[in-house]
Design a protein around this nucleic acid. Structure first.
Length: 892
DNA sequence: TCGGTTACGTAC
DNA sequence: GACGTACGTAACCGAG
């Protein structure tokens, strides 16, 4: 018997409103608004697809006042009546429901929620499990052993345990809880001045709303008692308003059973509404990629034939489809291959039916491996893909490692224009080729499950995946000659492509954090923050949201009358500079600053890092992005391990939580002053060249010049100022910016800059020449010929032009430094392998490489790495690398 | 309620 | 407007 199959009850009206508000207005060809229908249909199809329910009902509100309005005039009075452009969509929604033959629940004078409640209670009472599909908290009052609420948007199931976890209250207590709080969006009054925290406390204390009013005298806070007394009526009225009616007549179980939908009617509706994604007949438009040469490979014979064909080259284009974006858990669903723009092949391997069973008619992995290995391991056959950093570890973990030259269209595109808004395959195909590729969302029909691709039918997957390899091939035909034309081939093949497998390995390896240490830090920071919060409220004379710059500005400048500093677009700036300057006049700014620092560290690192520990490896695996920055640097995300704090003592505590594995040590090797050395080389400035060649402290030398003192008399403060100027120069500094940075007058700053350029005249000339060249060429390059376009360099808009000028100065320096560290990354890993050393590269932080090294190899590794890094490029000044060893990141 | 924008702060 | 390159968090806003 199928008694245990749940009945799904959808909160139809809620999703109509949600779709109407959340989705940008859409219309069909005849101008009918359709976005609410579209959003609703998507939710419905998602439930049908993901849950394949046998029993399903959908509840709707009926327009017009209901009994709640009679009870309380203001009920939902803040809600405008249904807008016309929504009302006109309702009939189509009903038609879609009707075409699916789904039971429709509605009744004059009641809301959808009441029908859901009545139906759910009745079915549950008959022993049928019920799943209410809704994101509305008011429905949580229904939750019981047999009634669950599912919010498909967040994919959260609320059973009694989940309710208790979220609210610290049982489902039966929620009504009273919400009654106390009220709900401003529905104009449910509640008790004024009681929010979630107080409401939770009261209900926990007294058990229920009645309990609270029966035991008012036990409530110690006089203020709170007053509030409760004053709004007693409202509290009980609120409860009535949000209590759902549970005894309306609703259908019997069998009436929810859904027969086959009326496909013809549905197609007719979708066509009329212009829901092209849902219209079955494939719509071929002028821009869609031609799909007639796409083939499914489902037999060994076919596989043999295509391998034979593909082995002829001249290149093997490939793309993998998987169950996850995380290569550590991703399983192969399919592989697409091509070597011409005409024919492409899709090998289905891991497709599943809705029950999760592997489909028949697929190639067993072992068989695919047997035939593909000669192809994939052919050292003379180049392998082309888009973002191979993703495919490489997937193929490797499935026993299909790649050999031969690697070519990547994403990297080619990046080198041709690193500032491109998107380097995604579909965006590039559209932009460069005018060809529209099927999106992932389309092929998975919006399925939000992480492994959604496994449930795509092989035929549809074939079309999608083959488009990708053909798209990559077509892009390559365009990019390859361009790489040659712009002298980028060496940079592409020997540097960026060589880096790919190294980044794969780094991401795979990950880094260990000491979870217990972070836990302690979290508690420690939490306590300090609570103290600071008290202090801040006392100093401010009121409670407010410390994280809100707007509220803070109000307190500092309006209430306390402190002098306003800079303004931002939206109000007064309260950034660290402003607060520091206010610290002399009042204690509040300093307390805010301390709070900011701590909460930043706690929220961004201490509390976030443990969440990112991988369940499989127990380590944290960042992504190193190779096509993001405009200058050629890498970036790091999820988490960003290139901005782990270092400057403050609190930051050091976080660094200390990054620990080397047992028996291993961290080795950090960083370039000394790499940016300034690159600038010295570019500028050929005698003073700078001499300083670096002599191994002098360049900040000290700058200090001596700008303060016009004997080097023996330079104070730490003077050196700090000089260091700021040295960095500022690289960024294309102005007197204004330097003054702001150092709290100097503009005149003083200007004097320092003048003296700097007087001494380092070559630097000034370099800057002028590079800007001039950028004006002429429209781009700048690095020493390895990496380019960055500067479309604004001749702009008539002064601000954008000047920005481009600063970029023209900074990019060759920052970009060359990026070239150097990338060369170093390749050289260091290669030398380590050659020497049989076992160090693993974990991090690259712009001028620094961090390795995890077996303790016994630490000295040899340090020497190899240092030598490799210092020798990668011959500049006119030496490259100097310092190495440090420690068991955690605070010590390196 | 949600995605986009703004302000801010961490790194090099 | 004013010092370059990133990424992430929290608040806020607009949509109606």
């Amino acid at each position: 018997m199928n008694q245990q199959e749940p009945v799904y009850l959808i909160d139809g009206s809620a999703y109509i409103y949600r779709a109407y508000h959340a989705i940008a207005p859409l219309t069909n060809k005849s101008g009918l608004p359709t976005h609410a229908v579209y959003g609703f249909t998507n939710i419905l199809l998602r439930v049908l697809r993901e849950k394949a329910p046998r029993f399903l009902g959908i509840a709707f509100d009926v327009r017009g006042p209901n009994f709640r309005h009679e009870m309380y005039q203001a009920y939902k009075a803040n809600r405008p009546t249904m807008p016309d452009d929504l009302a006109c969509q309702i009939p189509y929604i009903k038609e879609i429901v009707a075409a699916h033959n789904i039971a429709c629940l509605e009744r004059q004078g009641y809301e959808a929620d009441d029908l859901l409640a009545s139906a759910a209670k009745k079915l549950a009472g008959q022993g049928h499990p019920v799943i209410v599909v809704s994101g509305d908290k008011d429905l949580l009052q229904l939750v019981s052993e047999s009634i669950t609420v599912w919010d498909p948007m967040r994919d959260v199931f609320m059973d009694p345990a989940a309710v208790r976890k979220k609210y610290n209250l049982g489902p039966e207590q929620l009504l009273d809880f919400f009654a106390l709080m009220g709900d401003s969006s529905d104009n449910v009054p509640g008790v004024a001045g009681i929010g979630p925290k107080t409401a939770e406390k009261l209900i926990t204390q007294c058990g229920s709303l009645d309990g609270i009013y029966q035991n008012l005298e036990t409530i110690s806070q006089a203020k709170l008692r007053e509030k409760l007394l004053a709004d007693r009526e409202n509290a009980f009225l609120s409860r009535k308003l949000i209590t759902l009616i549970e005894d309306l007549a609703t259908p019997e179980l069998q009436e929810y059973e859904i027969p086959e939908p009326n496909e013809e009617k549905l197609q007719e509706l979708y066509t009329f509404l212009d829901f092209s994604r849902l219209v079955k007949a494939p719509q071929t438009t002028a821009v869609a990629l031609e799909t007639k040469g796409f083939h499914l490979v489902q037999t060994e014979k076919a596989l043999q034939d295509i391998c034979q064909q593909l082995s002829k080259g001249p290149v093997l284009v490939l793309d993998t489809e998987t169950t996850s974006l995380d290569p550590l858990v991703a399983e192969l669903v399919g592989i697409s291959l091509c070597s011409t723009a005409e024919e492409a092949y899709y090998l289905p391997i891991g497709h599943r039916d809705s029950e999760g069973n592997l489909l028949a008619n697929q190639l067993p992995l072992a068989l695919a491996r047997e035939h593909l290995t000669p192809l994939f391991s052919d050292p003379n056959l180049p392998k082309l893909g888009h973002n191979l950093k993703f495919d490489l570890p997937i193929l490797e973990s499935h026993g299909l490692p790649l050999s031969g030259p690697l070519w990547d269209t994403m990297l080619a595109s990046y080198l041709l224009d690193p500032s491109r808004r998107s380097q995604k395959l579909d965006d590039l195909c559209l932009e460069m080729l005018g060809k529209r590729l099927t999106s992932f969302a389309e092929v998975t029909e919006g399925d939000k499950r992480p492994d959604s691709f496994a449930y795509v039918a092989p035929e549809a997957a074939k079309n999608y995946s083959c488009e990708d390899v053909i798209g990559a091939f077509l892009l390559w035909q365009r990019f390859h000659p361009q790489l040659e034309e712009f002298g980028l081939w060496k940079l592409f093949s020997s540097l960026e492509m060589a880096l790919v497998p190294i980044l794969v390995r780094m991401e795979q390896t990950g880094i260990t954090v000491d979870q217990a240490q972070l836990q302690r830090l979290s508690e420690d920071f939490g306590l300090q923050l609570a103290e600071l919060e008290k202090t801040i409220y006392a100093l401010a004379g009121e409670e407010f949201n410390i994280n809100s710059t707007r509220q803070l500005g109000e307190i500092l400048f309006a209430k306390l009358g402190l002098p306003q500093g800079r303004k931002t677009k939206t109000g007064y700036s309260t950034d660290v500079k402003v607060l520091e300057s206010l610290a002399r006049q009042h204690d509040l700014p300093a307390a805010i600053l301390a709070h900011r620092t701590l909460s930043k560290l706690k929220n961004t690192y201490v509390d976030k890092l443990p969440e990112l520990i991988h369940p499989k490896t127990g380590r944290i695996h960042t992504s190193f992005n190779q096509t993001v920055t405009a200058t050629g640097r890498l970036s790091s995300s999820n988490p960003n391990l290139q901005n782990i704090p270092i400057r403050t003592p609190e930051g050091q505590k976080i660094r200390a939580a990054f620990v080397a594995a047992p028996g291993q040590l961290f080795l950090s090797a960083d370039y000394s002053q790499i940016d300034l050395r690159v600038m010295a080389h570019y500028a050929q400035d005698p003073a700078l060249l001499t300083a670096f060649r002599a191994g002098e402290d360049v900040h000290n030398q700058t200090a001596a010049e700008i303060f016009r003192v004997n080097p023996a008399f330079i104070s730490p403060e003077m050196r700090r100022v000089a260091k700021t100027i040295n960095f500022g120069i690289i960024y294309g500094i102005s007197a204004f910016g330097l003054a702001a940075q150092l709290n100097l007058s503009r005149k003083e700053a200007a004097t320092f800059i003048e003296r700097y350029f007087a001494h380092y005249a070559g630097v000034k000339r370099f800057m002028e020449e590079i800007v001039e060249k950028a004006r002429k060429d429209g781009f700048v390059t690095t020493l390895l010929n990496r380019r960055r376009l500067l479309p604004d360099i001749n702009s008539s808009n002064k601000a954008s032009r000047e920005f481009a000028e600063r970029t023209a100065i900074n990019t060759p320096i920052q970009g060359t430094a990026a070239d150097i560290i990338k060369l170093a990354t390749i050289a260091a890993t290669q030398h380590l392998t050659e020497k049989g050393l076992h160090a693993k590269l974990l991090l690259q932080i712009h001028d620094e490489l961090v390795f995890e090294v077996p303790a016994a190899e630490i000295e040899a590794t340090g020497a190899v790495v240092k030598e490799a890094m210092e020798g990668v490029m011959q500049l006119d000044v030496p490259l100097v690398v310092n190495t440090v060893v420690g068991e955690n990141l605070a010590k390196v």
